[in-house]
Every structure is written in structure tokens, then in C-alpha cells.
Amino acid sequence: MVQHDRGFQIVANALMIFLVICVLAPFLLMLMSSLTDEQSLIANGYSFIPKKFSIYAYRYLLVQSGSVAHGYLISVLVTAVGTFSNLLITILYAYPLSRRDLPGRNIFAFYLFFTMLFSGGLVPAYLMWTQTFHIRNTFFALLVPGLLMSPFNVIMMRTFFTTNIPDEVIEAARIDGASEFKIVFTVVFPMAVPIVATIGFLVGLGYWNDWMNGLYYINDDRLYSIQVLLMKIQRNLDQLRQQAQNGSGNVNLAELPSTSVRMALTVMGILPIMIIYPFVQKFLVKGITIGAVKG
């Protein structure tokens, strides 16, 4: 029996290791290409084992190219401001929803909930943001459309409040004379740190990874976040390729970053996530499990 189990364990582990390799291979290819000498990359292509190492791409990004440092700054700024505002709005909406004694809370619950069922879609939203709010090429374009509040997160947090914060605790604080706002920030918030961390990471991830708002609303390169920058570089390459196919090439190749620099840029786009991920991994897994089963 034990012998049999050892055989199974070997096979099971081998299968998982195979999966892990499949998951990691693209990242390894990316990392190795970013560390390959440009000439060697052009001659030999993307390779897991570079023929000739070079850290030129990173030196170029850090020293010569201002747009990357700037993109990082924009990304960090958007992520920080966005995550903070989102969490604030989410907590403030979730807390009264969790108060069973509040008259009319079902109206607010439905108001929130209906936005998960029906959506106006891209066209009306785009027309509104650009023509009513003139959001194009402003910092708000990266921050506000679609990202400032997620009904899923509000419901997740509401559920946490109802199940983990006893009514008696809130009642006791009120008897002590605390105002509702004081209760939220000094009583409820400290008890809700795990769920705030989980939702905070998911929201931050959403902001850090967002490039769609950049695609719709931004063409001023001073507002390119790192993801938007990557997206715009690829669009320029697409255009170049299409023009080459039509035989009307007039995009200057030299203006586009070289292959290794693009790969280094990709590494930079993932790096902060990979640094934070191990610390929040447990929260994240828990959050995914609660979130999916009970929206």
C-alpha cells in the first residue's frame, strides 16, 4: 500500500511540476530575452539560453529612457490614489448595508446590485466620459471610468461585516457616544483588516494592470502608465507591420524600442506584482474563494 502510494506521489508531483514549468516558461523566456544582447536576439531569436548576455536593456531603461521612469511614476500614482479611493468608497457603502436596523437599506442594495446585471456598454460610457466630462487626456481618465468601485467587492465586504462584526460591538461603541463615522474607522476598520487587504490587493492589481482606459482616453504620452506605454508600443509595431505589408512604410523603426528593451519593459511591468504577491498570497487565495462563491 505504501509502496503503491509512493508511486502515485511521484506521478502526481511530476504532473504538477510539468504544469509549473508550463506556467513559468513564458516568464523565463521573457526574462532571458531581456538579458540577451540585441544583435544576438536578432540573429538567433528569442531563446531560453541566451548566446550572449547583456544588461544593456535595463541600463537603457534606467538611464537613457525617461519615459519608463515616468510611466512607473504614473502607475504608482494611479494605483495608490485609485486603491485608496476605491477602498474608502467600498467601506463606506458596505458598512451601512451591513446594518440590519437601517431603514431602506434594501433600496441601496438593489441600486448597487442592478449594475452587476445590466450595463450600458462601451459606446454610451465612452461618449459620456469624453463629451460630458471631457476626461480625455486627464489623470481622471486612468482613475475613474469603471475602476473606482466594484459592486462585487462591496458585497464581499458587506458579507464580511455581517458575519464577523457582532452587533453588540457596534452597539457598545454607540452607547459610549461614538459617531457612526467614528465607529466605521475606529471599530469596524481594525476588525476588517483581512478583507480590506484582500480587496485592496485585487483593486490595486486592477489599477496597476489597467490599459483599457489608456486605450480609450489617453494619447498624451505624459500620462502613459507602464501598461499603457507597453500597449502603445505594440500598437505602433502593429501599424509598422501593416504598412510594411501594404508596402507603404513610413514609420521610423529607430524610434521604437528594440526587442530586448521591450522585454525588459515587460519585466518591469510585472516586477512590483511579483514582489508583493508572496506576502498577500494567502489573503488573495482566501479572497478568491469567498468572492467567487458569494459574489
Binding site: P26, S33, N209, W211, L230, Q234, M263, T266, I270
Partner: peptide, 14 residues
């Protein structure tokens, strides 16, 4: 955890 833009670069490397 990564964005589709990054995925598109990874796909392009292959």
C-alpha cells in the same frame, strides 16, 4: 495576476 498587454508580449516572444 498579469495584464493582457503583458500576455501579448509573452505570446509574441513565442
Amino acid at each position: 495576476l498579469i495584464s493582457m498587454v503583458i500576455v501579448s508580449y509573452l505570446a509574441f516572444a513565442f
